[in-house]
Amino acid sequence: MNGLLGAQLRMIYRARGDYLAPVIFYVLVASLFPLALGPSPRLLSLIAPGVIWIDATLASVVAFAGLFRDDYDDGSLEQMLLSPRPLELIVLVRVFAGWVSLSLPLVLLAPLLALWFSFPPPILPVLLVSLVLTTGCLTLLGALGSALTVGLRHSLVLLPVLLLPLATPVLIFGAHAVLLAERGLDPRTPLYVLAALFFLALALIPKATAAALRVALEV
C-alpha cells in the first residue's frame, strides 16, 4: 500500500498545476471579504470562522470533483477495478493522497487567513484541529460525489448541489467549535461530534465509493 500511495503522490506531483488552482481559489475567495466588507477588525474576526469554513467547503468541492474523472477518462479505472486488491483500499489510498495534496495546503494556509481576519492567535489550535477534521470529512464526501458523477457530463454543476447538503453538519460543528473558542468557552463538544462524523465517514464512504465506481463502469 505504501507503494501505491507513493505512485498516487507522484502522479499528483506531475500534474501539480491542476491541484494548485483550488488552493489559489481558496486564498482569493477569502481575500475578497475584507475588501468587500471593509477592514473593521471587529466585524472580520466575527465572520472569520464562517468565511473560512464556507471557503474550505467550496474549494474542496471544486478540487474533488475530478478525483476519479481522470481515471475514468484514461481507462485506469477499469484496471483499478480489475485489481485483486480490495477496491475500497485503493479508494482510501486515493482519498488520502488527495487530502495530502489538496486539503493539507488549505489547513496550512489557515493561519495566514486568520491574520487577515484579525483572528485572536490563541484560538489557532482549535481552528487547525477542526479544519483537519472538516477537510477529512469533505475529502471523503468529495470522493463519493466524484465517483457518483464520474460518467456524467457537467458534473461540476451537479456535484455542489449533491455535496453541499451533506457537508452542512460538518460545517455547523466545525464553525461552532471555533465560535465557542472565540467566546472563551470550551470547544470540545462540537470537536468530538466532528471527530465522530469523520470516523463514520471513514467507515462508510470507501465502501459506497467503490460501489459507485463499479456502477459507473457497468455496461
Partner: peptide, 28 residues
C-alpha cells in the same frame, strides 16, 4: 482477467516504465 479496452489504461503523466511499475502495484 487481463483486459485491454479502447482506453489504454495508462496514466498520461507517468513515463512508460513508471506506468509498468504502477500496474505492478495494482495487480500485486
Amino acid at each position: 482477467v487481463a483486459f485491454l479496452g479502447h482506453l489504454e489504461g495508462i496514466k498520461p503523466m507517468l513515463t512508460p516504465e513508471e506506468n509498468l511499475a504502477y500496474r505492478r502495484l495494482l495487480v500485486g
